[in-house]
Nucleic acid binder design. Structure first.
Length: 896
RNA sequence: GCCCGCUUAGCUCAGUGGUAGAGCGCACGCUUCACACGCGUGAUGCCGAAGGUUCGAAUCCUUCAGCGGGCACCA
């Protein structure tokens, strides 16, 4: 069999994915067990405009690990893929394309534009789905969904109409966040606050009929043109006499009242606040409380309106700011300008400064929808957040304080709002135009031009993708979903809203668990972003190190924030190569061997190292399963890594080598070869959820692979490791004693190697090794292991006796259980150096002994600590005393 | 302003009450018949600071410092 020395992932990756997909192994239907438990995940739908970044790769890896693990455990497993139409992003993308042709969307008109977007989507939209195949994501492509698909659009209309009919959705005027660049309303979750250095302007307003002036402070002087009041705190002595007074607004001449409002903080600024109800959220509320007029001085393009006055009309808001300040200065009404840091609100997409505007929009009263999820998380701690801290609290606190959700967007790409207006001004909300006509009793209807916030359809994702509002089999089978895997930044935008809709429409929560992944930063701890150009492209990492290695890194990132480091991927690439070569060794020595054989009969009849590896294997299976089920992927990866590399490669293969590579064929050789193959095969299964490609590649090459290895639920399928049964730990094979005994062997071998290294014995040179073991059992272990010890320490002979009776010129070491080892080094040994080496060791022991003695000498410890803990320390101290005694003797023997 | 998290070996990170860990890097030695993407050996930490609880603290509590998040209507 020809097997290259180095694993080349590229070829295997493409081949196996294509086969798995073609065979339908990703679909839940592959499971033929009618009693199978169900496991389901819906993917957080990536934007159709997007391409894969590390965050996706991280989420996908974790979803795939969970999916593959549960599939191998026999669950009817569904991981449902899809993508999001991403309203603003997609529309802007296509508009940018149009601009290159010198066109705007208005040149095309709505219908043609939308057609164009669809064409764009068909042509360029699928990038992430292609990239997911490269990742090895075992999603069921036959169930792939897009939020603008007809079925999902129907679900959106159903959601809208039902909420409208119940009075949860309303059409009305409100002060909303407006992006002057994207020309649309936004919800408060789509804007970001950003600390900014600016100025605080102190403007003086003359009081009518008096020489007095009231000073107000503002960061936005241009809005004074729309002021309709000045507010002070009712308790503020300084302004008490001004209550009810009238202010003559400079530049404008409008007469505005001084009102009292609790909102005003007397300690801040001057204690007097200008009130601009049409352009500030707080002032808007204050204006409503005091019935103040709303004067709109800024328009949708962030330019001043005619109402701002002839001098300002048409100016950009920042130009107007400069001019207002200049005029105040000229009038002697600019008291001062001070540096000031405040937070400014920006469009989450384009970073343009948001303009709060009064506008008629559609809103959803989220507070009502939020009640059920809030009760669920408060009373039953559902869904279960992992990690619980801090996310459960973040989620619950947000649900407790819900604001109305601005639903409408002034865009063309998206779900059109299912509302129609009659000529006589009535509003009709309906699922279809036909239904609207019936409800309106007229054909003369105009549909609302706006579309819905992209997150409105996302809110339905778990139920709509499974068929809602129809009561489909998929909905019955796979809902509620098992777990949601996502990043922390969309807990409000998405996670909470899926819980709202799920509970409202099905009475059941959308998912049992919510796993929040960590964030991957660049190596300097900066957030990766396109604009900074510091992103690491997962595809490039796949190319360089292989998908499996990258997945291991991502899985062990788990939920901690991590700085990306190629070195880590490299070390897992090395691990993949280690697996490859271990398998290579097994396969090069596989003649006469069969997977699954070699461990016949009672475990008690097996050789020590065979009992040991089975114990380690089962312990590993136990730990890894528990870790995956508890979302402790770091632990799972570490456990697998060390089992494979340390236990299997460094020790089991080495301890088995002489049997496996015996020159002549024999039943014993076949059995030994079968055993390494069997352990390898089980290890590959354990690794498969994390490293799907290399495990499949190697598994297919093992002799004796057949449908017998598949989980019973998949018995009809062709052999593939992805449908093999995940190894279940057999507690009966976990053998503490075998583990302790092999540990003693390992210690012996390590000590001799240490002596060889310290004494500068050439690697090619063999030495005799004398072992003294007063304990009969231990002596038997060493005696049985003589050929293995000899091989691993390159000994010319190994003599095991109750005590060592060797030459004075020996390098020695003491072992656990009163055992000793000596390497006679006639002529090679420097007695002074050897004494120094032993003294160093003794010092270490004495330090530890001193610590233990101190603790055991503490009356409180002996009295209060658990008895077994005290006994354990005594045992350890006794062992150290024994070693120290032996060392002392050895050193005395060396003395001249 | 309120809330939360993080601080462990040179680097990236594990580790929730009982002998401080991994990978990489570093030092020394090895073309040992699976693997130099390897093998063997070794060095490296008053676990951010100060208090406290406890027989015992990296781990629990308090305060502080540095870093990073989230929330908030302070003009």
């Amino acid at each position: 069999m020809e097997i290259p020395k180095t694993y080349d992932p590229r070829e295997a990756e493409a081949r196996h994915y294509a086969r798995w997909e073609a065979q339908g192994y990703f679909a839940p239907e592959v499971n033929r067990d009618p009693e199978a438990p169900v496991y389901s995940i819906v993917i957080p739908p990536p934007n159709v405009t997007g391409s894969l970044h590390m965050g996706h790769a991280l989420q996908h890896t974790i979803m795939d690990v969970l999916t593959r693990y549960h599939r191998m455990c026999g669950y009817r497993t569904l991981w449902l893929p899809g993508s999001d139409h991403a309203g603003i992003s997609t529309q802007l993308m296509v508009e940018r394309e149009l601009r290159k042709e010198g066109l705007t969307r208005h040149d095309l008109g709505r219908e043609q534009f939308i057609e164009r977007v669809w064409r764009w989507k068909e042509q360029y939209g699928g990038e992430i789905t292609r990239q997911m195949r490269r990742e090895g994501a075992s999603v069921d492509w036959s169930r792939e969904q897009f939020t603008m698909d007809e079925h999902l659009s129907r679900a959106v209309r159903e959601f809208f109409v039902r909420c409208y009919d119940e009075g949860l959705i309303y059409h009305g005027e409100g002060l909303i966040s407006w992006c002057p660049k994207d020309q649309t309303a936004l919800s408060d979750l789509e804007v970001d606050k950003e600390e900014t250095k600016g100025a605080l302007y102190y403007l003086q307003y003359p009081v009518k009929g008096s020489e007095r002036r009231v000073t107000v402070a503002t960061t936005r002087p241009e809005t004074m043109l729309g002021d309709t009041a000045v507010a002070v705190n009712p308790e503020d002595e300084r302004y008490r006499d001004l209550l009810g007074a009238t202010i003559t607004l400079p530049l404008v001449g409008r007469e505005i009242p001084v009102v009292a409002d609790e909102f005003v903080d007397p300690a801040f600024g001057t204690g007097a606040v200008k009130v601009t109800p049409a352009h500030d959220p707080n002032d808007y509320e204050m204006g409503r409380r005091h019935n103040l007029p709303q004067v709109r001085v800024i328009d949708q393009h962030a330019r001043m309106t005619a109402e701002a006055g002839a001098e300002f009309a048409g100016l950009d808001r920042y130009e107007a700011r400069g001019l207002v300040v200049k005029r105040f200065e000229e009038l002697g009404l600019l008291e001062k300008v001070s540096d000031y840091e405040f937070s400014i609100t920006k469009c989450g997409r384009c970073r343009t400064v948001i303009e709060p505007l009064i506008s008629t929009q559609w809103f959803l009263k989220q507070a009502e929808l939020g009640r059920a999820p809030l009760a669920l998380v408060r009373e039953r701690r559902e869904p279960r957040f992992v990690p619980r801290v801090p996310y459960e609290k973040v989620y619950a606190d947000w649900l407790e304080n819900l604001h109305d959700w601005t639903l409408s967007r002034q865009l063309w790409w998206g779900h059109r709002i299912p509302a129609w207006y009659t000529e006589d001004g009535r509003t009709i909300v309906a699922r279809t135009e036909e239904e609207a006509r019936a409800r309106a009793r007229t054909d003369k209807l105009t549909q609302d031009p706006d579309v819905l916030d992209t997150w409105f359809s996302s809110a339905l994702w778990p139920i709509s993708t499974l068929g809602w509002p129809d009561e489909t089999e998929d909905l019955k089978t796979f809902y509620p979903t098992s777990v949601l895997i996502t990043a922390r930044d969309i807990i409000f935008l998405w996670v909470s809203r899926m819980m709202m809709t799920g509970l409202k429409f099905t009475g059941q929560k959308a998912f049992n668990d919510v796993f929040i992944t960590g964030t991957i930063f660049d190596k300097h701890g900066q957030r990766m972003s396109k604009s900074k150009g510091n992103g690491v492209d997962p595809m490039e990492v796949f190319d360089k190190y292989g998908v499996d290695a990258t997945r291991l890194v991502l899985a062990q990132v788990e939920s901690t924030d991590t700085r990306w480091n190629d070195n880590l991927v490299e070390s897992y690439r090395n691990f993949a190569n280690k697996i490859w070569n271990a398998a290579r060794f097994c396969l090069l020595n596989s003649e006469g061997a069969t997977v699954g054989k070699g461990f016949e009969g009672e475990p008690a009849s097996w050789a020590l190292h065979d009992r040991w590896i089975m114990s380690r294997l089962n312990r590993t299976a136990q730990t890894v399963s528990a870790a995956i089920e508890g979302y402790r992927f770091h632990e799972a990866v570490q456990t697998l890594y060390h089992f494979f590399w340390d236990d299997f490669c460094d020790w089991y293969i080495e301890l088995s080598k002489s049997d496996v590579t015996a020159p002549d064929a024999s039943p014993a050789r076949n059995a030994a070869r079968s055993r390494v193959l069997t352990v390898l095969e089980q290890a590959l299964r354990l690794l498969h959820p994390f490293m799907p490609f290399i495990t499949e590649e190697l598994w297919q090459r093992l002799p004796g692979i057949s449908t017998a290895q598949l989980h019973p639920a998949y018995a009809h399928a062709e052999p593939t490791i992805m449908l093999a049964a995940y190894p279940q730990a057999d507690a009966a094979l976990i053998d503490e004693r075998a583990e302790a005994e092999v540990q003693a062997l390992i210690e012996l071998i390590s000590r001799v190697r240490n002596i060889r290294s310290e004494m500068n014995i050439k690697p090619g040179e063999t030495v005799p090794v004398l072992v003294g073991a007063p304990d009969e059992t231990l002596r038997a272990v060493f005696t049985a292991g003589v050929p293995q010890i000899a091989r691993l320490v390159r000994a010319s002979e190994v003599l095991v006796q109750p005590s060592i009776n060797g030459p004075r010129a020996s390098a020695r070491a003491v072992l656990a259980g009163g055992a000793e080892v000596a390497v006679p080094l006639e002529g090679l040994i420097d007695f002074a150096q050897e004494r120094a080496r032993l003294r160093k060791e003794q010092e270490k022991l004495q330090q530890e002994a001193a610590k233990l003695e101190g603790q055991l000498g503490n009356k409180n410890f002996v009295e209060r600590a658990p008895a077994e803990k005290v006994a354990e320390l005594r045992q350890r101290l006794a062992d150290i005393a024994q070693r120290t005694g032996a060392l002392t003797q050895t050193m005395e023997a060396l003395a001249e």
